[in-house]
């Protein structure tokens, strides 16, 4: 009669063997191993692009927690990226703090800001949260410009981390592994959240706020938790970028475009799924790099017209994203390739 959903108490090792035994499982493992070996044969330029993929990917994964799981349309997440980047730049450069202290300050400030913005707006309808987050990122941009003596103004600031750190991230191969590891960590966090109480509550809020409240979910509180976690992870990406890029600028950090990109990447990949933001980043960041650096200028803007059209068409005809659209590929792989025991 009733079939129960898998609640098996298999040993963890057993589960892993089973997951890896499936074709999609061992193929993923293969991709992972190839990725690990990449620095052996990839050029420095390709490694650089991949590092950018990781940094943007962290932001997209972070966005997916509040936007995808929670359904709360944050359009100002770049402000946290900016907090992370500027905390590192200012505290390391001007106050001689260590990188880790500076990064921690950036993350804490971001969490505080998330609570400050989330608390009032989460009780209002969705539009107001989106608008308030835009106001915050734009307002911060102007503030950074206004306090130019302190922040470096419109030109920005170069970052000179301690020499050991500069040596580490200056080596593309080592930098690749560092960012790959942090990216992986963020994927683990995102996976853990999805199956935690926070994750279930966020999904419930996204699906039906009243139903969630009736089930005892303090909707405002859990939205704030989700937003704060999203903010912390985005600040991490910003702080890491500051040492890698050794340069921060207000238009790059406190950018509405970047904020929208996090959302867009996640949408293209698949909102609310664990791998959506990852697939979206792998797909979009290289294309964007190509469009802006290779095409550039006028042809670039022609490409952006196409981008806008694609975005509109996707949202009208395929809002569930690539992951769901392409799930048949995974099924095909699982069905055609043999299982390994």
């Amino acid at each position: 009669m009733s079939q129960k959903q898998q609640t098996s108490t298999d040993s963890i090792a057993g589960k892993i063997t089973k997951a890896v035994g499936k074709p999609s499982g061992y193929l993923s493992l293969l991709v992972f191993l190839v990725a690990l070996a990449l620095p052996l044969f990839a050029t420095n330029y390709i490694l650089h692009i991949l590092i950018l993929v990781f940094i943007t990917g962290i932001g997209a994964i972070a966005w997916n927690i509040i936007g995808g799981y929670g359904g709360q349309f944050a359009l100002g997440n770049a402000v946290f990226y900016g907090f992370g980047a500027y905390s590192v730049a200012l505290l390391v450069n001007n106050y001689g703090q260590s990188f880790f202290v500076a990064l921690a300050v950036g993350i804490i400030l971001s969490v505080l800001l998330a609570v400050l913005v989330g608390y009032p707006t989460f009780t209002l309808s969705g539009h107001y949260f989106a608008l308030a987050t835009i106001a915050v990122v734009e307002g911060m941009l102007y503030l950074v410009l206004f306090f130019g003596d302190f922040t470096g103004g419109a030109i920005g600031q170069s970052v000179t981390p301690a020499s050991w750190l500069a040596d580490l991230v200056g080596n593309r191969v080592i930098a690749f592994y560092i960012f790959f590891a942090i990216f992986g960590l963020c994927i683990l966090i995102s996976t853990w959240v999805r199956y935690s109480k926070l994750g279930y509550y966020l999904l419930a809020i996204r699906e039906d706020q009243d139903a969630a409240a009736a089930l005892g979910v303090n909707t405002t509180r859990y939205k704030i938790y989700g937003f704060a976690l999203s903010a912390a992870m985005t600040a991490l990406a910003g702080g890491m970028y500051a040492v890698y890029g050794t340069y921060v600028s207000p238009s790059g950090a406190f950018s509405l475009d970047l904020s929208i990109q996090y959302a867009l990447i996640t949408l293209i990949g698949g909102m609310g799924t664990i791998i959506g933001p990852i697939v979206g980043t792998l797909f979009m960041v290289p294309i964007q790099q190509y469009v802006t650096t290779v095409l550039g200028g006028n042809l670039g803007s022609l490409a952006y017209i196409g981008y806008g059209v694609i975005l509109i068409v996707v949202i009208i005809y395929a809002p569930e994203g690539l992951v769901t659209r392409l799930s048949f590929v995974r099924e095909w792989i699982d069905n055609t390739l043999p299982e390994v025991k």
């Binding site: 359904g71 349309f73 989106a130 959302a263 803007s301 952006y304 806008g308 975005l311 949202i315």
Partner: peptide
């Protein structure tokens, strides 16, 4: 559709018009 659809669609329009 949910709010996000309208936000994205109109953001898409910005890109089209501006570029």
């Amino acid at each position: 559709e949910p709010d996000f659809a309208q936000i994205f669609a109109t953001v898409g329009l910005i890109w089209v018009f501006e570029n």
